[in-house]
């Protein structure tokens, strides 16, 4: 492993406004990624390992939430005091097909201060190359890690 943290983001998150778009990502979910996921989570569903009723191997429905987190920190700098992943919503529309290119777009959709933290909501949409919607996600991160009211 490399010895340092690598957050590549350069935009200031706390001053970013609602509607601020995150740099989109295009990716292909590979067989290796899905198999690694199966080993890490002990989830050996044959739909992920061999074949599914959807015409090929698929990835687990929640698979891309990890990637959206990476998207956030490859776009924004981590605020002083760090933060926590507070909430997550998924809307599953289509299966995530292994080997198919998807595009993930995201933006800030809400910012609110409560209980000693700044809560920032990010909305993400996963689409196939023809624009078909696959998964919608909403992620809420709260900053700082230790709530100001608890200091």
């Amino acid at each position: 492993m490399q010895s340092e943290l690598r957050f590549a983001g350069t935009h200031d998150l706390l001053s970013a406004e609602i509607g601020h778009e995150i740099t989109p990502v295009e990716m292909v979910i590979t067989e290796e990624m899905v198999e690694r996921h199966a080993w890490a989570n002990d989830d050996y569903n044959p739909w992920y390992i061999r074949d599914s009723p959807f015409g090929g191997r698929i990835a687990p429905p929640t698979f891309l939430s990890y990637d959206t987190d990476i998207m956030i920190w490859n776009h924004f700098t981590l605020p002083e005091g760090k933060g926590i992943w507070a909430k997550q919503k998924f809307e599953f529309m289509r299966p995530l097909m292994v080997g198919k290119k998807v595009k993930i777009t995201g933006k800030i959709v809400d910012k609110v201060a409560k209980r000693g933290r700044d809560h920032i909501s990010f909305e993400f949409l996963v689409t196939e190359e023809d624009g078909t919607e696959v998964v919608r996600m909403l992620t809420v991160h709260a900053f700082p890690l230790i709530a100001r009211s608890e200091r």
């Binding site: 989570n41 989830d43 687990p60 429905p61 929640t62 926590i84 997550q88 919503k89 599953f92």
Partner: peptide
């Protein structure tokens, strides 16, 4: 957090089968 959420995703697929499509999952950590 996403790794723990994956366990609920696993449960969704195992319980609903193909019916997880059209559904949703909303959690607080």
């Amino acid at each position: 957090a996403s790794q723990v959420m994956e366990y609920l995703g696993e449960m969704l697929v195992k319980f609903f089968g193909e019916g997880y499509l059209g559904g949703n999952l909303s959690v607080s950590i």
